[in-house]
Design a binder for these strands. Structure first.
Lengths: 193, 193
DNA sequence: GTCCACATGTAATCAGTTACATGATTGA
DNA sequence: TCAATCATGTAACTGATTACATGTGGAC
């Protein structure tokens, strides 16, 4: 259900076509909430059916069309209500820690391969998120720029500060996972001299 | 798909009925991979259909029956293969960090409420996982005891060490989330003097 | 004329959630 | 006899994944 509000958060800044929305999405919220276009288009239609957004068909060249969506009042209210409502936390379901708890069932080499892959995975994420932090500071993120353009001067600091805050949290998590897996590698060595 | 291997990990130690499996599950792997009984029973049936486990109907009192499952050779092989295979990482989908990135869209009070709820959520998890660590050290976990009983002496250290390792990782993650949210609270105060 | 970006979907499947549903056994 | 625990599911639904499917516009 969060996808809906992630999309609203972007559309609230200004109308976008499904295609543009999807691009902005993958460059901003997409770092926190992944969704492929095959999920975004149908979701937009559902949101329209629910009265949260409205799409306007626009001509594009001779025959082409594109559908530009904007948030309705009802959509805006729904978004703000969601921001006020308690988040529903999913129950833990963590395949990496699941496997880690049973590493004695496999070979030292397989254990090492798993831990190295874990490090590689989180280093990839870390790079993305650190990149996002750099872009936030440099105002290099198109979504953020669009956002700040319609934000009153006195609220800009807030906007930037919360973005930084969110990504800092992700960066710390990635570092934590990497450090943990490195300790795991040392543990495998210690247990298999 | 991890549920299947989480169940195999427990059943490999020795046969259990669906009911007992579910109890052991919730007291051990359940801390890392949640699953309700309504998911476990059908999954066992599917695993049986796939030849990974076999169930034997046992009498229980006059009319009652219970179905006791054990892992087949194919199940054992499938488990060991899974342990050797690369883990498939899910794409990020983190509602808390999603909301954090847009906290400027709501009131300071709602932002604080969100962050406090985040802290409470992770303190709950932390307590569970720290409890698990204590039980591991005290050999107070029934699943682990059952496990160690069928583990050769020289592998016990391994078994315990990897359990500790997995739960330590979770504990650190929880502490990280709590620290992050506390910094968030300070940020809200700073931005709204 | 061909390639890349623009533009928008459908269909099948899967994993997980919630709610519903039922009944037997054991011990106080 | 009553409650707790043992014991096992089904059904409807939701959110997400994967694969498939189709066509236009503009630049080189």
């Amino acid at each position: 259900m969060s996808l809906r509000y992630a999309l609203l958060a972007i559309l609230r800044v200004g109308p976008l076509s499904g295609y543009d929305l999807q691009k902005q999405f993958s460059q901003s919220v997409g770092h926190v909430w992944h969704a492929p276009d095959s999920q975004i288009y149908p979701e937009l239609r559902k949101m329209e059916a629910a009265g949260l957004v409205e799409g306007e068909e626009q001509a594009r060249g001779e025959r082409g069309t594109r559908r530009v969506y904007h948030v309705t009042d009802a959509g805006d209210r729904a978004y703000l209500e969601w921001m006020q409502s308690p988040l529903d936390y999913q129950r833990v379901r963590d395949p990496a820690h699941l496997r880690a708890a049973y590493l004695e069932n496999t070979t030292p080499d397989a254990a090492r391969a798993f831990l190295r892959a874990h490090i590689a995975e989180w280093e990839g994420e870390l790079e993305q998120w650190e990149g996002e932090l750099v872009r936030i500071d440099a105002l290099g993120n198109p979504m953020l720029v669009r956002r700040l353009a319609v934000t009153p001067e006195e609220d800009r600091e807030r906007t930037i500060a919360y973005k930084r805050f969110a990504y800092e949290g992700l960066v710390e998590r990635a570092r934590g996972e990497i450090a943990w897996a490195r300790r795991g590698l040392a543990l495998v060595d210690r247990l298999n001299p």
